[in-house]
Amino acid sequence: MPPFKLHTPSSLDEAFEIVNILREQNLDYDWVAGGTDLIPNYKWHINTKSNVISLSKIEELHKISKNHIGAMARLYDISQSSEIHPLIAKSASLVASVMIRRSATLGGNICLDTRCFWFNQSEEWRESIDYCHKCDCGTGADCRVIPNQNTLCVATYQADMAPVLMCLGTTIHMSSPEGNRSVPMKDFFKLDGITKNILLEDELVTHITLPDDVFEWEGDYQKLTQRDSWDFPEAGVAVLWKKGIKGPSELRVATTGIESIPRFHSEESQKIIETWSGSDSIEELAESIRKSVKPVLNTWFQPSYRRKMVKVLSRRASKGLLEI
């Protein structure tokens, strides 16, 4: 692994002080939370920086309560928490393996770097294909998944926490030396596979908050993987609803693991709620979600299969709708 200097501030103020000093010296840095995504990438010499600022000693980022989860909350702790919404706990319990969950964090999962067969490789490997757009090492290399277009990165966002959080109406809170800001979770992500989200330089996610009606929502999160452990989701679908008199009164759907950012499918779910008719509607919903996603060939399963499975996962995640 390339050497880097590790900083361990114990408060956000201290962290931003370090940032200011680094910036003055014209030095690059990365934030690190649990390190389960960043460190493997560093080992592969992917977009490495000379300084790394760890957030693990910042007490305020660790908090977990029913309406507030800190960015540094460990996925394992979230999965075991009885205070928070059970679907958040379920999503967390499905991430990677128990050992990863012990160090991986909520913030790290939300901000997970996008993944691609042509990118998550060692330096020699990437050199042998003359690098790629996402980590071009100054070569101006093309995308290896969809060649001859030098503008878009199609690496896949393969994190589990986002869909359920989006559906629950989560607000994400960010902080930087310039101040704090918040946006709804569903507006946090931004194409393409390199941009990933709206975080600005020197900005970091501090925590998320959940609206008061969070416990009125129920539903399910379903994911597709080769193995029941370790693997990143090849597709993931969250379907959440509020109970109405005949069927759901509100319906929200979000997907992950298929495109460069997780998607909130408001149009598709809105259409279904207006014309709700039981199992046929579920089938219609599942089909419309399938149609709306466009996976590419850069992860373990074939894209056509992942797309078809989105339909199956949507259907399975909607199963509870029939019990209303």
């Binding site: 393996s97 490997w125 693997d231």
Partner: peptide, 23 residues
């Protein structure tokens, strides 16, 4: 797994999928 140019795509134990205890 080999890519279209003959590159070995998964020379690592995350993408070379040995069954876990769950399987």
């Amino acid at each position: 797994k080999y890519g279209r140019g003959g590159e070995l795509l998964n020379p690592d134990l995350l993408d070379y999928k040995i069954p876990s205890i769950h399987e």
